[in-house]
Each structure stands twice: as structure tokens, then as C-alpha cells.
Write a protein that binds this DNA or RNA. Structure first.
Lengths: 325, 325
DNA sequence: CTGAAAGCGCTAACAG
DNA sequence: CTGTTAGCGCTTTCAG
């Protein structure tokens, strides 16, 4: 399957179009200021199409000092299909600005992010959670012009989720909540933040803090947690995500309890099987498109060197409750 | 957050180490034949570390005509968390060979694969399903040296899955099978292939073909399908994947039927919530690590220009049945 | 064993 | 409006 092949260069195009290589460059980059007669333009464009010419990215970024590559750094966390939507959406949004999105999933033995950044020659690195100062520095040294989000102080996109869950349950009259924390270590940090949101909602309503239980994705583990909650008179549980919520439901089933009568359960993510659980799951749904749009605009704005876009993180406007009851 | 910064060049390292730039290049690339005295070597290495020097990928690939980038092309298909494992695993395996894996998720409005390939300067493109000849050609023109898997004739990695499902059910005494095809159009092709495997198993056992029903991820849709199967005396169903299987379970619940007594159901993927369904789902589980290992070895072998690795696709050895009953 | 020199394909002043 | 001219940072012969 190995088959090397010589690519046409911009000089080839120039020759074919009967102009200089510089002109080709101008036409292809749509250089402003250098107004080029339509006739010449077309001639160059035709020649390029003819030869299936494609700009050599290495040469371009070497000469120009920048690339059109945006690197999305995805942490080593078990995220669901929602992630794919996010990535696809972002890629599409950026493609509209002639930017190419590539993704790097961090793995335990994989390359360090700055290495990857340098390898692909990315000029932008986008992460899900803010990078700390040290990482930002390393990425800049690795060649990134823009790194997002850089250590944003005190803004969490996670807390509003927990807050929304708890508020929903409080609004329905529950006064003693539980929180189902995932056992997976990589999810711990996110879990703590979401819990904080839930806790705040309880405090604000003059209620005691949620009773936290850590549960794995096995019925036994969930069953224990359910017993604990019952002992504490918990009547409603915020689950870290839908999978955890489904585990809670399984745990309840083991005790012959039913949602929402015995314990109400609310998840996060709105996974495809959420409406298929017994009973159908109430969940917090992200408006991925909205998030994507904002992120893409942010990247483009930063790249244009415009004013730093106001950092109003907090997904709040992008959250929607999807109730099935 | 925009902060340009000048990166150290190999000339800087050369100056710091008191050698020529050429020598730096030799040391850093571990050039064979050019035996370099340990002392010089160390001096260069130290200087590089000191300056946090990193090779400029653009310059390197421009000069050398090849890059260390492997591009993984993921189709626009709703795949689950298993995909992340696959990607991480592959990235790790390739990192061991100093190769950098980046992923591109195809989106409806995203950039065309050859464009992405050219943009990142990938020298290898890896896909999940074989590329057709035309695409392979385009990718080569876009600069890829290696494209995998190239149109492999008649080998399907999907059929063995359906075969395994059906065989399992047949072994348990079922003589009239159903097949639950996903409604999602992007999954159609995969579905047809898996169905083919199931059909072959039935035929080989002298049984009639499976009764196919297309179902979406909603209880109503599944409920209808279940009614249809009952009318045809189907006693066991192969579901395209676990989500579809869970939908079937939900549809059965609507008819007050229980698995596996009334209808046995088997899924594919072994998603985290599979053991949490009611009853726990029997499913076909991929040994992702094994698949990854093979793919990585394949890529490296091709890149080394070695003999074309025998194409024995068909995941069979990497499939495991995970029964919860 | 080491260094000088010639590009890789492209962009970006600067002249014509 | 178009072409000439330098490099971008690195690899790679080919001489010392």
C-alpha cells in the first residue's frame, strides 16, 4: 500500500498558468491589497485545479510562521458520544474559517501535549478545561500562538450543572438530596465541581448538604449507596452523569424501589439510552451547538488578534433540562 | 491569551554547544553511520535540553519530505466510548515508535479528508474501514505515503460480529432469530454487514434468515418491532449494538415481556451500562487492545517499507462474548 | 569525525 | 499589477 508520489508545486502551477510563482501565491491566498485581474486569477485557479495542486503545509507554515492547524486536546476521561458531536461541530465551525481541527486524545503512555503541538505545528491549542500557567507556557514554547482556555480564575463550567440538577429537585419539593459521585478516578475532579454546584443550590435553599456516595458501574455498588441514602432519608439524587444515574436506578431495583416515587434521580448528558431506561431518565442536556459556536468564535477572534474575548465561562445558557416524567 | 514567542532553533543549540548546526542535526536524529563521540553528543543534548529546544516540524518535513504524523480518519458515525479507547491505545502504541497520532472526525460541513491530510502533513492515513481506490489516490496526491486499510477485497470486520451473535443464540437452541437494525442512516452500512454475518450463521445451521426490523432509540419504535417478531415466532434477537439492544428491552417491557425467557437479546460493544440493564445484557465485546496492537504494527511495518503485512482482517480473534446470565 | 553549502516549497518585502 | 529576491529551520550530500 506504500506508494510515494511527487506532488505538484506552486511553481508547476505558475508555469502552467504562465505567471510567476509569486502571483500564484497571491491568488491562492487571496492577498488583499494586491488586486489581481480576474483573468489572471482564473487562469491560475484553473491551472491549480487541473493539477490537483495543494499547498504544501510545511513550506507554508515554515515561511509564514503560522499554520491553520487547531489542536484540540482531549483529556484521558471516559466521555461519551457527546464528545464526538462537540468535536465534529467544532471542526465544522472552524473549517468555515479555513482552519483545520485535529484532535489529540491524551493516553497514559502517549506523547506529551507540547510534543504533539510541535509535531503538528499547531498555532492554536484548545482544551476542555483551563490549562495551568505552566502548561500554557510550555505550549507557547512548542509553537502555539494561542492557548484556550488559559487559566481562567474561578470560573467553572461544571458547577452550573450540579446546581441545575439540585434546583430542579428542590423545586419539586425534595428537601434531602443525595449526590452520586462516579468511582472512576479521572472523573473525580469534574465530580467535585458539579457537587459544589449542587451543594450551593442546597445551601441557598436553606437545606442540608447533599449526602455524597461514590458508586461504580455495577449494581452491587449502587445498591449499597441506595441503602445509605434511604438510611439518611434522602428522597432525591443528583447523579454525576446518566451512566451513574442508570447505575442508581439498577441499585434501586435491587431494593425493589421505584423512581421517582421512592427516590427521584436526575442525570447529566442526555445519552441516547436515557429515555429507554426504566423509568425514563430526567437529565441535563447540553446544547452542544451553542457551546461549539462560542468556542469557535473565540478561537477565531483570538487568532485575529482582536480584543481578548470576555471570559464568561459557565455553561448556564447552554443547559437544558430534559425531563421524561 | 495571545502571546507569540520565538522558539530556539537548531542553530541556537549548535552555538550553545560549540558545534555546527549539522552536527546537532546528526545527534538529534541519531544518524547511523555518523558515529559521534559521546562527549560531543552529550554536549549537544545538554544544550538542547537547556534551551527546551524542539525540532521545527515544518522545517523538518519540508527538508526531509516526510513527517511523523499519522492521521486517523474517523467517520461521521455515532460510535461510543469504545472509540476513545481505540484512539488512545493507537496513539500510545505509535508514540512508542516516535509517531504522532492525530484524529480527524468527519463532519457534515468539515474539511475533506485529503485537505486535512495535506494540512497536517500526514505521511500515514489510517481509516477504520477500507478506503476505495479513488480516495486512496487522492490521499496519495495529498502527500500521504501510506494509506490503510486500502480497499481490501471482500474482507469485512463486521460480519464476524453478527455471526458470533447468531451462533451464540443458535447454540442456546433458538431456531427463529430476529435482527434489530439501527434507524440511524450512518449506521446502515455497518448494520448490513453485521446482518450478513448473522444470516450466514443461520443458513449454515439450516435455519431461516433472521427477521429484520429497523428500530430507533425510542420505546414506541422498539415496541412495534417486538410485536412483529412475536408474530413471526422469533425467540431471540441479535441487536446491532448495545443501545439498540437496550431499546429492544424497552420495547419488550412495553409488552410485559422479559428477556431472555420471552425473547433473548444480544448486543454488541459491551458499553458501561450493559450490565446495569434489566436484565443484564449479553453482548459481544471487542478486545480493543489486540486490535490496536495489530493496527499499530501494521502502520509501522508499512512505514518501514517492509513487506506488505498479510491482510487477515476479520476481527474474529478479538471478539469475546460477555454473557451476564 | 565535523562543517560548509545547497536546497525543500512557500511567503513577503521590495522593486519594476 | 506582477516579478525578483531573500530567507523560514532543517536535512543531506560532499569535502575537509
Amino acid at each position: 500500500m506504500t506508494r510515494p508520489r511527487k506532488r505538484p508545486t506552486s511553481t508547476d502551477v505558475a508555469r502552467a498558468a504562465g505567471v510567476s510563482q509569486t502571483t500564484v501565491s497571491f491568488v491562492l491566498n487571496n492577498r488583499p491589497g494586491h488586486s489581481i485581474p480576474e483573468e489572471t486569477r482564473q487562469r491560475v485557479l484553473d491551472a491549480a485545479r487541473q493539477l490537483d495542486y495543494r499547498l504544501n503545509a510545511s513550506a507554508r507554515s515554515l515561511a509564514a510562521g503560522r499554520s491553520d492547524i487547531v489542536l484540540l486536546a482531549v483529556p484521558d476521561v471516559p466521555l461519551g458520544a457527546g464528545l464526538s458531536h462537540f468535536i465534529e461541530g467544532l471542526a465544522d465551525a472552524l473549517a468555515a474559517h479555513r482552519l483545520t481541527l485535529v484532535t489529540h486524545l491524551a493516553g497514559p503512555r502517549g506523547r506529551a501535549l507540547p510534543d504533539v503541538c510541535a509535531s503538528v505545528g499547531a498555532s492554536v491549542v484548545v482544551g476542555s478545561e483551563p490549562f495551568d500557567a505552566e502548561t500554557v507556557e510550555a505550549l507557547h514554547r512548542a509553537g502555539a500562538d494561542v492557548v484556550l482556555p488559559a487559566a481562567a480564575e474561578g470560573v467553572s463550567s461544571m458547577a452550573p450543572i450540579g446546581h441545575m440538577q439540585a434546583q430542579h429537585l428542590i423545586d419539586r419539593g425534595h428537601r434531602r438530596l443525595g449526590y452520586a459521585m462516579p468511582a472512576h478516578h479521572a472523573l473525580r475532579r469534574m465530580g467535585e465541581e458539579r457537587l459544589r454546584g449542587a451543594r450551593d443550590a442546597c445551601t441557598a435553599a436553606g437545606l442540608p448538604e447533599p449526602v455524597v456516595a461514590t458508586i461504580g458501574l455495577a449494581t452491587a455498588s449502587a445498591s449499597e449507596a441506595v441503602a445509605g441514602w434511604r438510611a439518611e432519608s434522602v428522597t432525591a439524587v443528583c447523579a454525576f452523569n446518566d451512566e451513574t444515574a442508570i447505575a442508581v436506578l439498577a441499585g434501586m431495583r435491587a431494593h425493589d424501589l421505584r423512581a421517582p416515587g421512592d427516590i427521584a434521580v436526575i442525570g447529566v448528558d442526555d445519552i441516547p439510552t436515557a429515555p429507554l431506561s426504566d423509568p425514563p431518565l430526567t437529565t441535563v442536556h447540553f446544547d452542544v451547538d451553542a457551546v461549539v459556536r462560542r468556542r469557535a468564535e473565540w478561537v477565531v477572534a483570538e487568532l485575529r488578534g482582536g480584543e481578548p474575548v470576555p471570559v464568561t465561562e459557565g455553561f448556564a445558557p447552554e443547559l437544558v433540562l430534559r425531563s421524561s416524567t
